[in-house]
Simulated scan of single mutants.
Amino acid sequence: MPHDKLNLPVKICAVCQRPFNWRKKWARDWHQVRYCSERCRRAAKQAPSANG
C-alpha cells in the first residue's frame, strides 16, 4: 500500500506561522484546525487579544 504524503493539505499555524500538514486525527475537524500543536494553541490563549 503506497503512501502519498506529498498530496496532503497544508495550513499555516496562526501562532508560529509554520506550515503543517493534515493529520488523520484532524480528519473530521480539518476546516477548524488553526494551530500546528497544543503548545501553539496554549500560546494563542495567553497572548493579549488584538481585538480589544
Rank of each mutant, 00 (worst) to 15 (best):
K25E: 12
K11A: 10
C36F: 04
K24I: 04
L6R: 11
L6C: 10
W26M: 04
A44P: 02
V15E: 14
M1D: 14
V15P: 02
K25L: 09
L6K: 14
K5Q: 10
K45W: 08
A14M: 06
R23H: 07
A47T: 02
R34H: 08
C36R: 05
P9Q: 13
P2Q: 06
C13F: 06
L8R: 14
L8K: 12
I12T: 15
S37D: 02
G52D: 09
N21A: 15
I12R: 11
C40Q: 01
A47M: 07
R39V: 03
W30L: 03
Q46M: 09
F20C: 05
K5H: 14
N21C: 14
A43T: 05
R28Y: 05
K24L: 11
A14S: 11
L6D: 15
C16Q: 05
K25D: 11
C36H: 04
I12G: 06
V15K: 11
Q46H: 09
A50P: 14
S37Q: 03
A44T: 00
R41L: 02
P48Q: 09
V15A: 13
V10K: 15
A27C: 07
P48D: 11
P48C: 02
C36Y: 01
A47C: 02
R28L: 08
L6A: 15
V33N: 03
G52V: 00
